[in-house]
Design a protein around this nucleic acid. Structure first.
Lengths: 366, 366
DNA sequence: CTGAAAGCGCTTACAG
DNA sequence: CTGAAAGCGCTTACAG
C-alpha cells in the first residue's frame, strides 16, 4: 500500500495522510483559499489577521473566497507557529457545588469577549486529580490557568509555573508570596451581619462553623469572632457548633443547638448549604423563622432567595472573583515575568438582608 | 534588530522567535529530550506514544530524561500532525441554570477518562452566540460537539457538519432525521406522577406549563395530558396555567390557582423552579404543603431536596443525557460517516416521591 | 502591497 | 529496534 517513492508528490502525500486521519479533517486549508483567490498564502494570512498592509481590493477578494469555501483556519497550526494558544484553563473543585456556576459563567464571559476559549475541568476535591488537570493544561499550552479550588497542592501548581504559564489561585494565604492569589476579605460581611443582628436586639448568637482543616472556614470563623467582639457579643462555647458544610450538617447542628437552654436567638452559618439544613431542622421542630429564631447564611447562593422565608445571607461575589482572576492572568501574560506586578485582587463580602432575620422572641431572654 | 542573514542558524532563529513569543513557551521540546537521551526524536515520540517497538532499555532511558527535564509534549504540534485534537466541545445555554452542572460534570468525567479535554461554552439563550460558539469549536478542530441547548439553529449546526465534525443535539425532534439527537421520553415520569396522585385520592389536578414556543414544554404538557387521560383525570381549562419557567412564574401562577374555586388539590409543574415558586406562594397564603395542597415538580434539581418539605418531583437524569451524548460522539468519530448508525439514545423520566405530596384535604371535595 | 521560504514541534512510512 | 526526513497548516522577516 505504501509503495510510493519517498519523493511522492505533495498532493498524493496529503491524500495518503488524509485517509489515515479521522474524517473531521476538512480539506480546506489556506492553500486552497490562496489558489482560488490567486494570491499567496501569506496574503491570505494577512487578510485573516487584519493586517493593514493589504490592498483593499485584494483583501475583499480573499474574504469572498473564504466565505465561498467556508474556510476555517486551523488553530493548531496557528498556535504551533505563534507559541500561544488563546486558551485559558479553569479548574474548580466541584461544578455541582452551586458556588461555582456563577464563577465559571463570568470567567467564560470575559474570556470569550477577548477571543479566548476556556478549557474547563474539575478536581472533585481530589489532589491527585489537580496534578493531572494541571498537566493536561500545560500540554494544551494554555496561556494561563485559574485554579479556583479551595485546597491546592504546590507541586501541582509548579507543573504550570515551570513552563512559565501564569497561574492565579483563590484564597491561598500560604502561597500568596509565590503566586497570584485572589483574596477574599470576610470582615465586612460578618461585621454587617453582627451589626444587623444586634440592632434587632440579639445577644445570644450562635455560629455554625465547618471542618477546621479548611482554610476558608477558619478565616470565616475568625471574621465572625472579630465582629462579635467588636459589638460586645460574647460567643458561648456551646454556641459554636461544627457541621460538614452540607445541608445534612446544618440540620444536625441545628438540632443540637435547639436542645440547648438557653438557646440562641440567632444563628450565623459558615455557608448557605448549612443554613438551609438549619432552616429545615428549625421547621421540623415546629419553630418559625424568623419569629422564633433568626438565621444568616454565607455565600448568597441562588437557593438563598428560593427558601421560604428567603435567607438573609452574606454575599460573596463569584463574578468579582472571576474578574479578578481573569484580569490577573491577562496582566501576567502581558507584563513578562515579575516586572510591574499587579497587586492581588481583594474581594469583599457584604450582608444581604432578606426574610430570615427579625427581632428575637421576647421570652427567650433567659 | 532583524539584521540576521536569511540563513540564520536554527538555534538563532529559534531564539529570535522565542523572544517574540509570550513567555509561556518552554524551551523544552522533543529535540532536547532526544539529544539528552542520545536517541532520535522518532524514538522519543515512540516512547511517549507507547509504541512496543522500542527496546525496553532505550525506553527506560528516554522516560528518565523526560522526567528529569520535565518535558511536556506540545499538543498543538501533535494535533496538527495527527489531524485530531482529542478535544470535545460542550455547549449549554446557561450554566447558571441548575439543570446543567450535573450534565457538564458527567460529560467532563467521561471525556477525562478517555484522555479527552473539553472546551466549554454557553450561549445565554442567544442564537447568534450559538453560531459563534460553533465556529470557534470548528477552529479549534474539536473532534465532536455536544450541543445541549434547548433551542438550536440549523445553520449554526451546519458550521460543524460541513467540516465533518460529529455533532449531537438534545431533544430536537425536528432535526432528528439529520443529526444525532438525545431524546427525552417524558411519558413514564408523568404517568407515575398521575398514578401517585390518583392513588392518594386526588382528582382535581392542575398543571403549570411554560411558554408554548419551547418544544420541551409542549412535550411535557402532552405527556401530562396523556397520563391524565389514561387515569381518567379531566383537566379543567382553568387548571392549566402558564408560567415563565422561573421561580417568579411559579409564584404568580400559584396565586392565580389559589383564587379559584373549587381549587385544585394537587399541582404538577413543568419544572422544579416553578414548583419552588408555587411552594412559596402556598406558604405565603398560609397553606400547608402537603396537607392542604400537593405539589410535584419536574427535573429533580438539587434544590428539590433542600426545600421544606422536600419536593416530590419527576427525575430527568442529566448524567444519562451526558453519557448518551458522549457515547454518540465517540461512535460517530469511530464509525466513519453513515455506516452502522447507533440508534439515538433515549432518556426516560421517573417519579421521586418525597414530602410534598399527601392525600387531599377532605373538605376540598367541592 | 505581495510572495517565496523557513520553521513552529510533533509523528510516521520507509529504509536500514 | 532505530534514525533521517517529510509534512501537518499556519505566520512572518525579508526581499522585492
Amino acid at each position: 500500500m505504501h509503495n510510493f517513492s519517498a519523493r511522492v508528490s505533495k498532493a498524493m502525500h496529503r491524500h495518503e495522510i488524509a485517509s489515515r486521519q479521522s474524517y473531521n479533517s476538512h480539506f480546506m486549508d489556506i492553500q486552497q483559499v490562496a489558489k482560488r483567490a490567486g494570491v499567496s498564502t501569506a496574503t491570505v494570512s494577512r487578510v485573516i489577521n487584519g493586517s493593514t498592509k493589504v490592498r483593499p481590493a485584494t483583501a475583499e477578494r480573499v474574504r469572498q473566497v473564504i466565505a465561498e469555501l467556508n474556510y476555517v483556519p486551523n488553530t493548531s497550526a496557528r498556535n504551533l507557529r505563534m507559541g500561544r494558544s488563546e486558551l485559558f484553563g479553569l479548574v474548580v473543585s466541584d461544578i455541582k457545588n452551586p458556588f461555582f456556576p456563577d464563577l465559571i459563567d463570568a470567567f467564560e464571559e470575559l474570556a470569550t469577549a477577548q477571543g479566548i476559549d476556556v478549557i474547563f475541568t474539575h478536581t472533585n476535591y481530589d489532589r491527585d486529580r489537580l496534578a493531572t488537570c494541571m498537566r493536561r493544561m500545560v500540554e494544551r499550552n494554555v496561556d494561563g490557568i485559574a485554579v479556583m479550588t479551595s485546597e491546592v497542592d504546590e507541586p501541582a501548581i509548579e507543573l504550570a509555573t515551570r513552563s512559565h504559564i501564569p497561574v492565579v489561585l483563590l484564597n491561598q494565604p500560604a502561597l500568596e508570596s509565590r503566586y497570584s492569589t485572589i483574596r477574599v476579605e470576610y470582615s465586612r460581611g460578618f461585621r454587617e451581619a453582627i451589626a444587623h443582628l444586634t440592632k434587632l436586639g440579639h445577644r445570644d448568637i450562635a455560629f455554625l462553623t465547618g471542618p477546621s482543616d479548611l482554610g476558608s472556614v477558619v478565616r470565616r470563623q475568625k471574621a465572625f469572632q472579630a465582629a462579635a467582639q467588636k459589638y460586645g457579643i460574647y460567643l458561648r462555647k456551646e454556641f459554636l457548633v461544627t457541621g460538614d458544610m452540607r445541608v445534612e450538617g446544618g440540620r444536625s447542628a441545628m438540632e443540637k443547638l435547639l436542645g440547648l437552654k438557653p438557646r440562641p436567638t440567632a444563628l450565623i452559618t459558615a455557608n448557605d448549604l448549612m443554613a438551609v439544613g438549619a432552616m429545615q431542622a428549625a421547621h421540623s421542630a415546629g419553630l418559625r423563622i424568623p419569629e422564633d429564631i433568626s438565621i444568616i447564611g454565607f455565600d448568597d447562593l441562588p437557593i438563598a432567595a428560593m427558601m421560604h422565608p428567603q435567607l438573609t445571607t452574606i454575599h460573596l461575589s463569584r463574578r468579582e472573583i472571576a474578574a479578578g482572576a481573569f484580569q490577573q492572568l491577562v496582566h501576567l501574560l502581558h507584563k513578562k515575568s515579575s516586572a510591574d506586578p499587579l497587586p492581588d485582587p481583594k474581594v469583599h463580602t457584604h450582608l444581604i438582608v432578606r426574610g430570615s432575620t427579625a427581632p428575637p422572641p421576647s421570652q427567650s431572654k433567659s
